[in-house]
Design a protein around this nucleic acid. Sequence first.
DNA 1: ATGAAAGCGCTAACAC
DNA 2: GTGTTAGCGCTTTCAT
Lengths: 349, 349
Amino acid sequence: MTPPLGDKRNNDAARRRLQMADIARLAGVSVSTVSRALNGSELVNAETRERIATLARELNYSINLGAKNLRLQRNHTIAVVIPYDAVSRQHITDPFFLSILGGLADAITDRGYDMLLSRVDAENLDAVARLVDSGTAIGVVLIGQWRHHDQLNQLAARKLPIVVWGAQLPQQMYCTVGGDNVRGGRLAAEHLLQQGRKRIVFLGDPQLPEVGQRLAGYRAALVAAKVAPRAELELAVPFEVGAARAAVASLLDRKIAFDAVIGCSDLLAISAMQVLREHGRDVPRDVAVVGYDDMPLTNYCDPPLSSVHQPVPEAGMQLVDALLAMLHGQVAAPRLLPVELVIRRSSAA
Amino acid sequence: MTPPLGDKRNNDAARRRLQMADIARLAGVSVSTVSRALNGSELVNAETRERIATLARELNYSINLGAKNLRLQRNHTIAVVIPYDAVSRQHITDPFFLSILGGLADAITDRGYDMLLSRVDAENLDAVARLVDSGTAIGVVLIGQWRHHDQLNQLAARKLPIVVWGAQLPQQMYCTVGGDNVRGGRLAAEHLLQQGRKRIVFLGDPQLPEVGQRLAGYRAALVAAKVAPRAELELAVPFEVGAARAAVASLLDRKIAFDAVIGCSDLLAISAMQVLREHGRDVPRDVAVVGYDDMPLTNYCDPPLSSVHQPVPEAGMQLVDALLAMLHGQVAAPRLLPVELVIRRSSAA
DNA sequence: ATGAAAGCGCTAACAC
DNA sequence: GTGTTAGCGCTTTCAT
């Protein structure tokens, strides 16, 4: 067993941490004065204040924030939670989620808060509530709505300050921020229909709220164009490259005709492109392909991939702002972020 | 001005936070007993302990960790810092850094610590010391050594517990964990030499420690193969796609002959491939290309990109273990992680 | 303008 | 076994 860490003994060994009393003694004043001085209080003599500030700076002293926060009953930490699958214990590998994380880091630090990154078991979202109940964080941004709608509702029912990246659902008690998925699905399908494509494959698991809405948009576009949706072209694959490849290959093997593919992530779409090429189909001539998320990698594949763009930095800001609004006692309404289709060669005429 | 957040008034408005005294009153015992019970002390009657535990669970009470840590002089937070460097323009959106972040999140949570993600101005690394001095974190993992060698040495001189992802340098006082860059550069070059390539372009800014070492490995391989390194083939481009494209295009424009490219990131290598294709050069026939980091995207470009693989999950673990060792008072020696070349079509015979 | 003292929510001697 | 008490490092009345 390794010894405990971060406790007094260890710190003593390294260097005893300086505290206010030390500064006070050295400055020949009381702790209260030091406290006031360091917090820029007008009450303390300007000259003394300067002397104390200098002393503190020279000694690299900084206020113990734990103690300060305890005394002030305050906290500036926002927890960002990524549920992981208990079975695979797999961490987030999807580039889109990782970039959302980057956007959140920016938004949270810009607003003067700290970001605690926390992985929790998806089956045990109670751990999320504990982050707030224990005073570790003042609120939670959760990335990965997945199938946890009910659990998330329960957390919200407990009055847990939480904002979720994902889709807005019926009977939803928690606040979501997410891309306009219906519009995203529709834009992709409309674009392909305009290119004269009629048999458009949809690649994604509609059980997932966001994907379900994209599918709805896709269907709506088909109907509006008087093209009947075909069940055999809706492939319910998870966000996993292997499954996507297999599904597309199976379609080709079974000689089911199609002239376009919409993937619910860029990776899914690119996997489809690869399978198509391996089977001798040309993209975009034989099959046009559109992806989702518009990650940088869309520019680096061949042909460059058309994709539905989601505003990542905006997502970070909106998630944080919604959470802060909630903490201010306001009702945070779900927010739908604009998406747009970026057309590249994979679907060009 | 928005009102302060996370302070008492706001919490009162929402729901007053339960505390030990409340549980004690409800259970008809003293706070100490509750404290002992909740910490599983054998001292308290098994039956009382169970009663208290149940009560706490039913009321969703959880111990205030801020207060607990203050009292225990303890802390379980590790700060992960990503300095933003204006010069090299590579920041948190780089896929490699983001995946390192994922690896760290795994490693830190697996060991029972919390991960605080912090972006700091690279010009002001003092903010890093403050994370520890203020008791916010017990130590720091810094991703992005860049040109901050001297500043990092100063931090280490202050006895700041810090581990840096990057290259081991002379006169280094801080602990680094990094891939074996010399070997990575050498492997890439040797592989290309074996394919009969003699005029190998090196794409990357050698001012950056990691890149400098890769360049050294590259040169060593050339020399060993009796091929003289040529200054005009060493392109000192930053980690930025535009610069890489321009550099390669300029080479082509100036009709400087080359038959291979090593990029210091996958993005750099892919950018090179795109420029080559735009100029009618076939990859790998005319020019073989090798990237660095072996991110998933290497599989999705055309042709699939050969790349030097760096062990990301291993990196997270080693960084954290080195930091913990340091906090245990041990001397944490720099660690070099094995890299290997993954050969794909972009450089195949 | 400054200091003494109380207290944030918790734990750990030290009593009994 | 359980309660009483002191104190973690800070801020803030309340005195002076």
